[in-house]
Design a binder for these strands. Structure first.
Length: 171
DNA sequence: ACCCCGATCGTA
DNA sequence: ACGATCGGGGTT
């Protein structure tokens, strides 16, 4: 995907990322679940309290990776959206891998499957040749469901989680 | 320097 | 329902 794909409203990017393929060092999967984190006013966002060394990539222009370490054992992969200095990103929460036996039904599990860590935060996915998003399966709106985001304690009134209703349609 | 807690997951 | 496990970030 090109820079234009990511430099647009985050909710739109989160919806459109469903069905796309996320590649990392030769492995890939179809994106089946995403969440949008939009701007400093989104209380659930890591950027809600301003820029820090960890969340700095969220302030980059769309198309960069933002990877963080959580709960002492997992990494979570985000793709930055919108313009520079408007902190926003899409969390990749679900993947359907080629070897469908692979356990990639959660943000921590899919990062572990791909081998992505914080060493891969702040990378330009529109330039890298081993970490990028490519076309996949196009999904009509009737195959997409929206719900509140999970694992957070604030911002639950926003239906900013997007998921593919029937994952069997991917793969 | 210290302390609390988290955009999770597996097991109970 | 809860414990594992540790870096980040706010506070001192």
């Amino acid at each position: 995907m090109s820079v234009d794909f990511f430099m647009r409203p985050t909710l739109e990017a989160a919806r459109e990322l469903l069905g796309k393929r996320l590649f990392f060092k030769g492995k890939y999967g179809y994106i089946s679940e995403t969440e949008a984190y939009v701007g400093q006013d989104d209380p659930a966002s890591h950027a809600a309290r301003g820029k820090t060394p960890r969340n700095a990539p969220m302030f980059y222009r769309g198309g960069f990776s933002y990877v963080y370490f959580i709960y002492g054992m997992y990494y979570c992969i985000n793709i930055v959206t919108e313009r520079e200095n408007f902190p926003s990103a899409v969390l990749i929460r679900g993947l359907v891998a080629k070897e469908s036996a692979a356990k990639t039904d959660g943000p921590g599990k899919l990062a572990r499957y791909l081998g992505v860590t914080t060493a891969h935060s702040g990378i330009d996915l529109t330039q890298a040749d081993d970490f990028f998003v490519a076309e996949g399966i196009s999904l009509s709106d009737d195959k997409v469901e929206r719900t509140p985001r999970v694992g957070i304690r604030v911002g639950l009134e926003k239906p900013w989680r997007f998921l593919v209703k029937d994952k069997n349609f991917l793969a």
